[in-house]
Amino acid sequence: MVNGTIYREYYLFDLPKGAIRLALVRRRCRLRYHLARVKMTQAELSRRTGYSPQQISNWVNNREHMNYESAATVAYVLTCHMEELYDLEWV
C-alpha cells in the first residue's frame, strides 16, 4: 500500500539490471453508473447480493474497495464485467 492506495504489481519482463514494474490501480468506483444503467437502487442490490445496505453505500461512495468475490457477485447481478466496476489505471 502506497499513500492509501493498494497496488497490485505485474512484471512485464525482467531486465538484467532490474524489472520494469507496472501496477494496476483501482480509482473511482463506477457502481453508481451501473445501478442507474440497470435502473436498480442500492437497496435492491443489497437484497439481491446479500451485502448490507451500508456496505453497498461504502462501495458507491469510494470509502472501501470491493474484494474479488464481492466484485464477481455484484458484476453478475448488474450484468457487467468486474473490470467495469472501477476506473482502472496503469501506473
Rank of each mutant, 00 (worst) to 15 (best):
A36M: 11
L31Y: 09
T79E: 08
M1E: 06
L12C: 14
Y86E: 04
F13Y: 13
R63Y: 02
P53E: 07
V2T: 08
Q54V: 13
L45K: 03
G50K: 01
I56F: 11
Y33I: 10
E89I: 08
S57E: 09
G4T: 10
S57M: 08
R30N: 02
R30H: 00
T41Y: 06
R28I: 02
R63D: 02
V38L: 10
A75W: 07
G4F: 12
H81S: 13
E89D: 05
L85E: 03
P16W: 00
G50V: 01
A19Q: 13
S57W: 09
R26I: 10
L35W: 04
V2A: 06
R32I: 07
Y33Q: 11
Q55K: 13
W90P: 15
C29V: 13
G18A: 08
A23L: 05
S70R: 07
R26A: 13
D87N: 04
Y7C: 12
M1I: 06
R63V: 00
Y10F: 15
E64M: 12
R28K: 04
Y11K: 15
E44M: 09
R26C: 13
P53S: 08
N67V: 02
K17R: 06
A23M: 08
A19Y: 09
F13P: 09
E69Y: 04
Y10R: 15
S70V: 07
Q54Y: 09
S57I: 05
H34A: 02
E84F: 07
H34E: 04
K17S: 07
A23P: 01
V60P: 04
L85P: 06
K17G: 05
L35C: 05
N58R: 11
V77N: 02
E69A: 09
R8A: 15
W90K: 15
Y7S: 11
V2I: 10
F13L: 14
R32G: 09
V38S: 08
A43T: 14
W59P: 01
Y86P: 01
N62T: 00
V74L: 04
T5R: 08
L78K: 00
E84S: 10
V25E: 14
T41D: 07
V38M: 09
